[in-house]
Design a protein around this nucleic acid. Structure first.
Lengths: 231, 231
DNA sequence: CGCTGTCTTGAAGCGTTTCAACACAAGTGG
DNA sequence: CCACTTGTGTTGAAACGCTTCAAGACAGCG
């Protein structure tokens, strides 16, 4: 693994961009946003760098302002599962902030990435001072929880083929009837709780059945949406 | 399915008990708790009654003051999965309150049950008035989310035998080295994303291997904890 | 007590993983 | 820019784990 050579920077232009980007802050008055902005720090990570690891002490909320971050977990038996991918405007580190203070997952930069960080104590202060922030975070948590429980139920009750079909249908661009995979098929396998081989095979089967058409490695044309959803 | 014959009641003794029971309110000053209490309503459900269904409009937070409630989901393909069981002091209905307002899960009374309900609009008011309540709910959401993501990862990466072993070890009473199952084996199967047959077989295997000993239908003595965790 | 639902056990079948070998793409350094 | 290296994607064959169906034992409730 690479070493942490991420740069700290304090140009407030970055922070401002960052804070005004996230739904949890962008409803605040300009001067309140400035206040938040001044307490934030920002740092950069290169592709492959680890931002935090499971077991580490957590002390900040991370807001992505540029790049991509993948969040994954290791199960009790050591297998890796991809949980989600963060794009600019998304945030992470929340879980540990309101609980034990220990990260349960890993965060790794998938490309050169810039984040702004807000310290736990600063955040708590803002939450009490501007209760509307809490409501936003509650909304975010609530939809994440809904998403996570839905995913749990899918793993518990659906076979791989169905999980793939549902995944594709949720990413479908209705205009073009195309899906652009947001990750490699290897990562997709990890996300869907299966193996790259199975992903490969199931997509080939769907193609043989005339339901989809694969173009290149990350483009999939949906030919028969109804057929896809019947699986 | 049985009909809704649950009784509404307005004796404030119930509410008080109820409100002071939940971690999200019990840190408030006595008079603030009274305030919450007066806005709460309470109602009762008989064993088997449905409290809410997926797809229904949500308008309240439900706090269990007596009895047991099971929360389950139906997957896209119609299979049922048990998500969790609520005991006195637990609450539900939250998800829909901060989001779409539509329930994604089913809530059913497992025994004669009493809940108090706080209306969405009243709750929002309290959250803005007493920001510390938000912090409690954030902590609760945060640990639920952690729990749910851990569960997702287990389903994605562990085999049934391991999921059972982990489940048992988390319920273990260290004093007696015993586990009392909080539900029927049928429900356990649904919770762990498998079938009653498999649960039955795996427990029998563990018993044959001298790792556990089953006493009656819901008591399991752990004989070799290390062996259990090695699975 | 009898009925209903839960639990157990066996045998067959299916879906997915695993291992191995190869094709292909991307990234690196000469 | 090409050759090299590394990682990702594909395909086949065998093995494994779990589900399904069926039938019988058992427990709990009215």
């Amino acid at each position: 693994m690479e070493q942490h050579h991420h740069t700290q920077c304090h140009t407030h232009d970055h922070h401002k961009q960052c804070i005004s980007l996230v739904p949890i802050f962008n409803h605040l008055e300009a001067e309140q946003m400035d206040e938040v902005m001044y307490t934030a720090h920002s740092s950069s990570y290169k592709r492959g760098e680890i931002i935090y690891k499971a077991g580490e002490e957590s002390d900040s909320l991370y807001i992505v302002s540029k790049g991509k971050i993948k969040i994954y977990r290791l199960s009790e038996s050591g297998k890796e599962q991809l949980m989600r991918i963060l794009n600019p405007g998304d945030f992470t580190g929340e879980l540990a902030l309101f609980n034990e203070g220990i990260h349960e997952s890993y965060a790794e930069a998938m490309a050169d990435t810039q984040v702004c960080m807000i310290k736990r104590s600063d955040l708590q202060e803002f939450l009490l001072k501007y209760p509307s922030i809490s409501l936003r975070i509650l909304a975010e948590f609530s939809s994440r929880l809904e998403q996570s429980e839905k995913q749990t139920t899918r793993f518990a009750t659906e076979k791989v083929e169905t999980r793939i079909a549902l995944f594709l249908s949720e990413l479908l661009e209705e205009a073009t009837m195309e899906v652009t995979l947001p990750m490699s098929k290897k990562d997709l396998a990890s996300y869907l709780g299966t193996t790259p081989e199975t992903i490969s095979r199931k997509l080939a089967e769907l193609e043989d059945a005339g339901i989809i058409k694969q173009n290149g490695q990350r483009k999939i044309k949906i030919i028969d949406l109804d057929g896809l959803l019947l699986i």
